[in-house]
Simulated scan of single mutants.
Amino acid sequence: MIKSLTGLFVLICCHVYAQQEITEQELKQHIEYLTSDDLKGRYPGTPENDSIVNYLVEDFKSHGIQTLIQEFPAVMRKDSSSVTTWNVLGFLEGKDPLLKEEVVILGAHYDHLGTKGDHIYNGADDNASGTAALLEIAEKLKANEHLLQRSVIFIAFGAEEQGLLGSKFFVGNPIVPIKNIVLMLNMDMLGHLNEQKHVYMGGAGTFPGGVELMKNLGERLQLNPIVHAGSVGGSDHVSFYQKEISVLGLHTGGHEHYHQPTDTIEQLNIPGIVLTSNYIYQTLMEITSSDRKMEFIKQD
């Protein structure tokens, strides 16, 4: 099913253990690593960026998820320099002989702004929170892969902060036929769930029954989703929407720490990330473990 590409390397993986639950402990461990000062703000084209790629690859592999890396050039906004960075992909194949050709993508960008002067922009919410959720949801889906009818690709995107470069590269160089992708669900900033338990999303009207599905699942999990049929937004899912692929972009709201050195792990609502991650997991299961109709609906 997966096409071979220049710059795409299939990594052999061995199944170790994939746990059934998304835990605060593992989410926190991922975020602590990703926001470490040693990683200097996760800037593309740096040795620290290479370390993150290795970390993501090893985590997917450790849970028996087929893992690939996709290399691409990225032009930096601040000085127009060109660097090399990567998307990190995990793949689970569906079990239905026909529906497995249809693919749902779960994505989050792992890069951030690097350093400015003496300040490190660790990007705990933006987007260590989404990257940690990606790893935990992937592990839980792996533990329940026998339920999947459709296939799933997990993507940790590089260079989002430089202009959605990782997602733009992927849709231009997909590892499956682009027509086979029935939904892209993107997580960008999941760390500030408020007391009202609002989860914000755009794009729910880009596939049949999406608005109703997201509202009903939210109520079931005692969340209060703010669901927009359109309002696709400005993160990596936009690259897919522009290819006429259904999308969902999820976040837990803006705050004063956005793109500031104060966006640190101490500011995050870790239990809130668990709740939001389970909401996203249930969304994926509703779509990947069923034969519900999926088609692109354009929104104004």
Rank of each mutant, 00 (worst) to 15 (best):
E136A: 07
D188Q: 01
H112V: 08
L98D: 15
K140I: 00
G205C: 05
L185R: 04
H192E: 04
L134G: 12
K197A: 01
A156H: 02
V104R: 05
E195P: 00
F72L: 10
N180I: 01
N173I: 04
G163V: 00
A143E: 05
G163K: 00
P174F: 08
L113A: 07
P73R: 13
L183A: 01
S151G: 03
M187Y: 04
L89P: 12
T115Y: 10
E195W: 02
N173C: 02
G114S: 11
L134S: 15
F91M: 10
H198Q: 12
Y200A: 01
L193Q: 02
S81Q: 08
L141N: 06
A124P: 03
N186C: 07
S80H: 14
M76H: 13
L185M: 15
P208L: 12
I175V: 13
N186I: 05
A124F: 09
T85N: 11
G94E: 11
H192M: 05
M187W: 05
L98I: 15
D188K: 05
N180W: 01
S82L: 11
D118R: 07
V83F: 14
Y200C: 04
S129C: 05
N173S: 12
L165D: 10
A138C: 12
Y121N: 07
L99T: 03
P97Y: 03
N194Y: 02
F72Q: 07
F72K: 11
V83W: 13
H112R: 05
N87Y: 12
K78A: 15
I120C: 13
F170V: 14
E102A: 06
A159L: 08
E160N: 08
V199G: 01
E145D: 13
N173G: 04
A128Y: 10
K95A: 06
N186V: 04
L134C: 10
G90P: 08
E160L: 11
Q162E: 15
L147V: 09
A133R: 00
L193F: 02
P97E: 07
W86Q: 15
A128N: 09
G94T: 04
A108V: 05
E136T: 00
D126Y: 05
K179E: 15
K142E: 06
R150H: 00
F91G: 03
S129G: 06
L134F: 13
L98E: 15
L147M: 15
D111N: 12
L193E: 01
D96T: 06
T84Y: 00
L113G: 08
K142S: 11
N186G: 13
M187G: 04
E102S: 12
G114H: 11
P208W: 12
F91E: 05
V88R: 05
A159I: 06
D111C: 07
T85F: 06
Q149I: 00
K168L: 10
M76Y: 09
E101Q: 14
A132E: 14
F170I: 11
N173H: 15
